[in-house]
Design a binder for these strands. Structure first.
Lengths: 251, 251
DNA sequence: ATTTATAATGTTGTCTGACAAATCCATCAG
DNA sequence: CTGATGGATTTGTCAGACAACATTATAAAT
């Protein structure tokens, strides 16, 4: 019983998808503003001449896409910061694949360092230095310092004042965590490696502190090059399946 | 009537989400392999002691996350290339925001050009040159050549042989399309701009052809710098809302 | 026996109706 | 004016049915 009282979704594909498209369009064009409540499921069903199930499926899609949030008893609302989903293949844990990730990371972090040198605020610089100190501390205690290392690089990304960098770096770092841990649990090489890492970090921070864009970019580039080299020294059989943290789902 | 015959989702949050979590976990750990068919909705409902509606919502989430695909009459199948969804804020169309995108693009394309120079295959180089020729052709006909321009940059990204670059560049290019179009519809500046662009492209391609990594990276960097400059010359009031192509939804 | 139609079965998509759980709102008591 | 209370609203879940499509088994025909 598809009567299409108001608008007629192009026939053919899934009804829920067609409705989801229309609602998405309304949100993207600003026809429905962030925070605004959308019509009730019953009302939407009435408007499009479809059942509530289909409406729910459509809204479910929007929810999964981060466009709306639903509260039981209250309604569904356009998200404050509408998002779109970038679907990316899950990197497999092979050495080859991790190196591809490092290449991406190099691209991002070189530029992030450059921008950070250009426009870091004093407080951002302070946070970078604190993160660097945290690494030293962790290493002295005997920890691997991987988390601190990532926090350090994240602080630089933040100082770029460009959210795109932080978003993507955050995303991929989840998959690099394991690989980096492996290189640092290699007992024989660990001490020399960490000394190198700390020294390379220092060069980057100095350049950022002095506002020397080119030096910062080059230092970051060298750091990532060396990171790849260090990774290749690690016994590859340690690079096994990426552990499932359960936190990498979009829910 | 929640009996949880096999596994008991931790009670509290949405049922569908809990089920989605479990299924996601099964897929990520490889317990269910790509291409494999998952149990029918009825069977899943039976297993978890929930109704079919909830199962459908859960599967809808997985579908939206790109983890499974469903075929009516056949079943739902684990996707061949499991993905995770990176949810990103939709860039607004302000000049400031577009420039942030260009910064990201510079990071990616500089490195992509470097890698392309390092390992492009002959056929990839051919495709890059064809794309460059397409731009010339479009310009001669009087078109803006934006699509061809993007195809050109995409060809370079492909030649990097690193899928991460192509995926991210593809994603963001949707939002840059409009901005670039604007700079090229500026009648007074168009001819000189296009001449510049074509010349800059030529330098990049030459470097890639000769396998000169450093030159390719520098040429790409300069190209993007100049792109930002050209954008700033365009009347900012033309930068209005990003047109909704309908193709930027994750459906 | 092999191939081609046909029927039977299984599965997802949609419809309908109902109730539970959470929220919102108006009314009323103090 | 404040706070409690009850009813109305709205999403979440359940249940059962049919439609649309796919797959498989069966029968027919050459």
């Amino acid at each position: 019983m598809i009567t299409n009282h108001e608008t007629q979704p192009t026939r053919g594909v899934q009804l829920s998808e067609q409705v989801a498209r229309q609602l998405t369009h309304a949100i993207h064009t600003g026809e429905m503003r962030p925070g605004e409540r959308l019509p009730t499921e019953a009302a939407l069903g009435e408007r499009y001449g479809i059942s509530r199930s289909v409406v729910r499926e459509a809204i479910s899609m929007l929810r999964n896409a981060g466009l709306v949030t639903s509260r039981r008893g209250s309604g569904s609302f356009v998200a404050e910061v509408p998002t779109v989903a970038l679907r990316l293949a899950i990197p497999d844990p092979s050495l080859q694949s991790v190196i591809r990730l490092l290449e991406l990371r190099r691209a991002l972090e070189v530029e992030a360092a450059r921008l950070a040198a250009q426009r870091r605020t004093p407080s951002q610089l302070r946070r970078i230095r604190n993160a660097m100190a945290d690494i030293d501390e962790a290493v002295e205690v005997g920890a691997d310092g991987v988390d601190q290392d990532m926090a350090f690089h994240r602080a630089i990304a933040e100082a770029s004042n460009n959210t795109h960098f932080t978003a993507i770096i955050d995303f991929y770092n989840r998959f690099l965590h394991h690989a980096i841990t492996v290189t640092r649990t290699n007992e024989s090489l660990r001490e020399t490696f960490m000394a190198q890492v700390i020294e390379e970090h220092q060069v980057i921070v100095d350049a950022i502190a002095q506002g020397d864009e080119e030096a910062a970019a080059q230092a970051a580039g060298r750091h990532l090059e060396h990171a790849e080299w260090r990774l290749r020294q690690a016994p590859t059989d340690l690079l096994e399946r990426i552990e499932d943290t359960g936190a990498d789902t979009p829910f």
